[in-house]
């Protein structure tokens, strides 16, 4: 059974179609990155999955249970949700908020205390748990947000841009935490930080203009789009040779940052034959570094969106 199953999901806002006939299935115990440029429909999709927004058409099932908008849906027992900027009651302490949420799930008194203690330790908020939420930093709120999302030990955890509002340290902490949560749980996270996808996701779903571009394991996508990328650092500015590289048959795309060029190769065999290296050596501007890289999620994302 799929952890999340979406069929023909559509969301229209008057004249705008935010999500257009979207269908995908997410397997159990996978971390899935929902990717797309700004305004692609990621947040609209997530808000329909968690029951905050009503689909214009289509169905959503969480571990086989249908999500019903506006009703006390049984699917809510299987979901944990972390919004982009989690807003909790500022006047409550972190402990009181977790207790409030635990009571909504009707956990027994003993389970409540145990679970809260466990989660507070997991998200490293032991020292601040009795402080008012209003005094928390963004990172602390994010961690408390994760704790509240896990209070019912959900099968599916849904996170909307979980690290986009955090500083690098906060981001690293939260990503490490998400990795820890992978055991026995499906995680769907929307993000536009593609290096994070590389670090933690098994699968990716890419959408654009509300439509599905691809839904596939990340490794499979990388294999499919595995044409290597050359990273060449020159001793002088290579501005003058960019045009000639672009004109050559073996280069698909060239980007320049300072003295460094990134060259997308059209065919893997040209590397075996050393064609690019020979070509670049002839240019007489001095090669400082010549590296062959594997494509990252970002490269795949860009290629797929370009195709779209």
């Amino acid at each position: 059974m799929s952890a999340i199953s979406i069929k023909n999901l559509t969301k229209k806002f008057r004249l705008v179609t935010a999500v257009d006939n979207l269908s995908f299935d997410i397997e159990e115990n996978h971390i899935v990155g929902l990717l797309g440029p700004n305004g692609s429909g990621k947040t609209s999709t997530i808000r329909m999955i968690v029951g905050l927004s009503k689909p214009t058409r289509g169905t959503i099932r969480i571990a086989g249970t249908k999500v019903e908008f506006g009703q006390n849906s049984p699917a809510a027992h299987k979901i944990g949700y972390l919004p982009e900027l989690p807003s909790m009651y500022d006047w409550m302490s972190g402990y009181e908020y977790l207790m409030f949420v635990a009571k909504i799930f009707k956990l027994s008194r003993k389970t409540r205390s145990l679970r809260i203690r466990e989660l507070v330790k997991l998200v490293d908020l032991e020292k601040a748990i009795d402080r008012r939420i209003g005094t928390y930093s963004s990172g602390m709120k994010q961690r408390l947000g994760i704790a509240q999302a896990l209070i019912n030990d959900p099968k599916v955890l849904i996170m909307d841009e979980p690290v986009s509002a955090l500083d690098p340290i906060g981001r690293k902490e939260v990503l490490n935490l998400i990795k820890k949560l992978k055991k026995n749980r499906t995680i769907l996270l929307s993000t536009h930080i593609l290096t994070d996808v590389d670090r933690i996701c098994d699968d990716v779903i890419i959408i654009n203009h509300g439509e599905l571009i691809t839904a596939s394991p990340l490794a499979q996508l990388k294999a499919k789009y595995a044409l290597p990328i050359l990273e060449v650092e020159f001793k002088k500015n290579p501005r003058l040779i960019v045009k000639s590289i672009k004109a050559s048959k073996w280069a698909n795309k060239v980007t320049q940052v300072g003295n460094r060029l990134r060259i997308w190769i059209t065919d893997e065999s040209v590397i075996e034959k050393n064609i690019p290296l020979k070509f670049l050596a002839k240019q007489n501007i001095g090669i400082g570094r010549y590296t062959i890289c594997s494509p990252e999620a970002e490269d795949i994302f860009m290629r797929l969106l370009e195709k779209d």
């Binding site: 989690p86 909790m88 909504i104």
Partner: peptide
């Protein structure tokens, strides 16, 4: 306005 509903309304709670 304070968006506190965003989390609470995803829980099994009757509106």
């Amino acid at each position: 306005n304070k968006r506190t509903l965003e989390i609470v309304m995803t829980k099994p709670i009757s509106r």
